[in-house]
Simulated assay, not measured.
Amino acid sequence: MQKIRYWVVGGEYTSTDFETLIEGTERVVGPFESRSDAERTWRYLSEDHRPQAQVRFTIAQEPQGTMTA
């Protein structure tokens, strides 16, 4: 049985359209074994960057079958 892993990804974007990340601001945090652990980190990062309107983070679920034994 494979475990599902979660990652928190994001950074600062060029605009509030959130389409293009500014190079060098990318952040990838994880992996997390549970969604709740990832949500805690996402919440912390989001709150920490709240004054910066062009910074956004999201939770990504690792696709099934990408892990090796």
Score class of each variant (00 low, 15 high):
residue 37 D to Q: 15
residue 22 I to K: 13
residue 69 A to N: 11
residue 42 W to Y: 13
residue 1 M to G: 14
residue 19 E to M: 05
residue 8 V to G: 04
residue 22 I to Y: 06
residue 42 W to Q: 01
residue 59 I to V: 13
residue 2 Q to F: 05
residue 47 E to N: 14
residue 23 E to F: 08
residue 66 T to R: 11
residue 45 L to Y: 03
residue 16 T to F: 03
residue 2 Q to G: 06
residue 61 Q to K: 14
residue 10 G to K: 04
residue 58 T to G: 03
residue 55 V to A: 00
residue 35 R to I: 11
residue 5 R to F: 14
residue 19 E to S: 11
residue 15 S to R: 06
residue 41 T to W: 12
residue 57 F to W: 07
residue 5 R to I: 12
residue 12 E to K: 11
residue 39 E to Y: 08
residue 62 E to I: 02
residue 36 S to L: 05
residue 67 M to D: 12
residue 12 E to R: 10
residue 55 V to K: 07
residue 56 R to M: 06
residue 31 P to Y: 02
residue 30 G to Q: 05
residue 23 E to G: 03
residue 26 E to L: 04
residue 17 D to G: 08
residue 14 T to C: 02
residue 16 T to V: 08
residue 14 T to Q: 12
residue 40 R to T: 15
residue 32 F to E: 04
residue 54 Q to F: 03
residue 23 E to I: 11
residue 48 D to Q: 11
residue 27 R to S: 12
residue 2 Q to P: 13
residue 63 P to D: 10
residue 66 T to I: 06
residue 14 T to L: 01
residue 65 G to K: 02
residue 2 Q to V: 04
residue 54 Q to A: 06
residue 57 F to P: 03
residue 8 V to R: 01
residue 37 D to T: 04
residue 53 A to H: 08
residue 50 R to I: 10
residue 13 Y to T: 01
residue 65 G to M: 02
residue 65 G to A: 00
residue 47 E to G: 03
residue 69 A to Y: 15
residue 24 G to N: 10
residue 2 Q to E: 15
residue 47 E to F: 08
residue 40 R to A: 12
residue 48 D to I: 00
residue 43 R to E: 15
residue 24 G to M: 05
residue 65 G to T: 04
residue 12 E to T: 01
residue 7 W to E: 00
residue 21 L to A: 08
residue 29 V to C: 08
residue 69 A to E: 13
residue 57 F to C: 07
residue 27 R to Y: 08
residue 64 Q to D: 13
residue 26 E to W: 05
residue 28 V to D: 07
residue 10 G to N: 03
residue 48 D to C: 05
residue 31 P to I: 00
residue 25 T to Y: 06
residue 52 Q to L: 07
residue 25 T to G: 03
residue 55 V to W: 12
residue 7 W to F: 13
residue 54 Q to C: 11
residue 17 D to P: 01
residue 8 V to N: 04
residue 6 Y to I: 00
residue 3 K to M: 09
residue 38 A to C: 07
residue 38 A to S: 01
residue 67 M to C: 06
residue 42 W to H: 14
residue 43 R to C: 14
residue 37 D to C: 05
residue 18 F to C: 07
residue 23 E to Q: 09
residue 10 G to W: 03
residue 52 Q to W: 08
residue 5 R to P: 09
residue 46 S to E: 08
residue 25 T to I: 09
residue 8 V to E: 02
residue 36 S to F: 01
residue 34 S to P: 08
residue 22 I to P: 02
residue 49 H to Q: 15
residue 2 Q to S: 13
residue 39 E to I: 07
residue 60 A to V: 12
residue 47 E to W: 09
residue 31 P to S: 04
residue 63 P to W: 09
residue 8 V to D: 02
residue 27 R to V: 12
residue 23 E to S: 10
residue 6 Y to A: 03
residue 44 Y to E: 14
residue 10 G to S: 05
residue 11 G to S: 05
residue 39 E to D: 15
residue 16 T to Y: 04
residue 26 E to A: 10
residue 51 P to D: 04
residue 9 V to P: 06
residue 46 S to W: 06
residue 9 V to E: 10
residue 34 S to T: 15
residue 53 A to Q: 13
residue 22 I to N: 11
residue 33 E to I: 02
residue 58 T to V: 14
residue 24 G to Y: 08
residue 31 P to W: 00
residue 18 F to D: 02
residue 12 E to F: 00
residue 64 Q to M: 09
residue 33 E to S: 13
